[in-house]
């Protein structure tokens, strides 16, 4: 076990019109080999038509311990949703 192979995250776009979606990770020496390996490992059955790979260490992530302060405030801002507002009876196209 000499040097460690870098880890890459793999994103696949199922078809044009959709965004690339994370599907998993793999080890490869460089981006070219990572793309080839991703094709073999993650797209054996028409899963997509485009692949992105990115070194795992280049991704920054939010801290799950701070998920409450980051994401819960959006739950108590009900006025951001259309259902917060009342529409008078008989008024349409609103």
């Amino acid at each position: 076990m000499t040097d460690l192979m870098p880890i890459w995250e793999v994103f696949v776009r199922p078809r044009n019109g959709l965004a690339h979606k994370h599907v998993g990770s793999l080890h490869a020496g460089d981006e070219e080999l990572a793309l080839q390996a991703a094709r073999d490992v993650y797209t054996r059955r028409n899963e997509g038509n485009s692949i992105w790979v990115v070194r795992s260490e280049h991704i920054a992530a939010s801290d799950p311990d701070r998920a409450a302060e980051n994401f819960q405030p959006s739950a108590d801002k009900v006025y951001r949703h259309p259902t917060f507002y009342s529409v008078p009876d008989g008024v349409e196209n609103l």
């Binding site: 880890i7 991704i59 801290d63």
Partner: peptide
């Protein structure tokens, strides 16, 4: 290594 290493957090 996948999200585990993202923040290098414990």
């Amino acid at each position: 290594m996948y999200s585990q290493g993202l923040l290098k957090q414990d």
